[in-house]
């Protein structure tokens, strides 16, 4: 399979089919990203449209030796944040954990709800790392690329977020190991 980076490189050279392939690879997952905290498919698709337009405008800036995924996510999350700012909402407060991904375990469902509330109380910089790690499936080095920081600094933010969320959950009485399963993945 041709890599994203190779496809982007081809698009830089004017290959429209490569752009179509990148769109097909990333549109579904970016739509899910846009829908998180938005729940409006039309708006999500508008934001997706803006994301790919920005990708087109910024195509000359893409360095083919850099990973494509953090680059397009940086654009997409900026577009999303810009939308929330425009309509006067805080995207971070609207973070949601997809209940479908929790297999119906009541303990985990409850933990997900409480976790969402705990995440919403985090400072923006920590919340961003949590969002990218948990919800977008980025590794810490990739997150560093997205936020323009170092790997070490991102791990520090994740660790602080982990401690803060854990303290919040413990204050709320969420202490069962099963309920904290999600949180464990964040501990660097």
């Amino acid at each position: 399979m041709v890599s994203d980076e190779e496809l982007m490189s081809r698009y830089q050279r004017g290959d429209r089919a490569a752009f179509r392939q990148l769109f097909e690879r990333y549109a579904p997952r970016l739509r899910r990203t846009m829908l998180r905290g938005l729940h409006d498919r039309e708006v999500a698709d508008d934001l997706l449209q803006q994301t790919f337009l920005q990708l087109h405008r910024a195509r000359a800036d893409y360095r083919t030796d850099a990973s494509f995924r953090p680059w397009i996510y940086t654009i997409a999350l900026n577009v999303k944040r810009s939308y929330f700012r425009r309509v006067g909402r805080r995207s971070e407060g609207a973070l949601a954990i997809d209940p479908a991904s929790i297999d119906g375990d009541p303990d985990e469902l409850m933990a997900a709800r409480e976790l969402r509330q705990a995440v919403a109380t985090l400072p923006a910089a920590q919340r961003q790392v949590v969002e990218l790690f948990w919800f977008e499936g980025f590794s810490f080095p990739e997150i560093a690329g997205v936020v323009g920081s170092t790997h070490g600094a991102v791990k520090v933010r994740a660790h602080r977020a982990y401690k803060s969320i854990r303290a919040t959950l413990e204050r709320q009485g969420v202490t069962e190991p099963g309920q904290l399963a999600y949180l464990g993945r964040l501990a660097p």
């Binding site: 769109f23 549109a27 579904p28 590794s139 660097p188």
Partner: peptide, 19 residues
């Protein structure tokens, strides 16, 4: 967990043409 590497999500092909 102490891992740095997050399991990667495989791209979902756009077979339905909904996009």
């Amino acid at each position: 967990s102490t891992t740095d590497d997050h399991p990667q999500t495989e791209p979902r092909p756009d077979a339905s043409g909904e996009f």
